[in-house]
């Protein structure tokens, strides 16, 4: 039986064909009393309705966390969580942080050392002793 290479099946890639947002949930925490929540409180009143309406696929919860700094927590479909403290920030800055969490994929942040990154295998394939040049020892 001749040796056959494994057939490559098309890998699913997010955004090729369909795009699934990796962020599935955003929790907004604020404090009614503390001054560091001032920007967060006005964000929740002014910008959150529009933000939630433009991102219907994200579950959004708003809950108080008394005597604590305001925090936005993102939960991702890979099971990880990302939390950003938005103390003393202004409305625009908080909106930027919410968008950052929405667009993140939930992976740990890694330094990109190589100029090119590909999900595809090498076109040269895996080395095999039965193919290619016969080396006589």
């Amino acid at each position: 039986m001749p040796l056959q290479a494994l057939r490559t099946v098309a890998r699913s890639q997010n955004g090729v064909g369909a795009f699934i947002l990796q962020c599935k949930r955003l929790d907004f925490h604020y404090c009614d009393w503390a001054g560091s929540s001032k920007g967060m409180n006005s964000f929740l009143q002014s910008h959150l309705p529009a933000f939630a309406a433009s991102n219907p696929q994200i579950e959004i919860t708003v809950s108080p966390r008394p005597r604590k700094h305001p925090v936005i927590k993102g939960t991702y479909i890979n099971g990880r969580e990302k939390a950003v403290c938005v103390r003393n920030m202004e409305v625009k800055e908080i909106l930027a942080k919410a968008e950052l969490l929405r667009d993140a994929n939930g992976e740990k942040l890694r330094k990109a050392k190589k100029p090119v990154k590909s999900a595809n295998e090498s076109v040269r394939g895996i080395w095999d002793p039965f193919h290619g040049a016969n080396w006589s020892i």
Binding site: P56, T61, P64
Partner: peptide, 10 residues
């Protein structure tokens, strides 16, 4: 908004 839930306490 169906995707927003507001909690009254922690």
């Amino acid at each position: 908004l169906q995707n927003v839930k507001l909690f009254e306490r922690r």
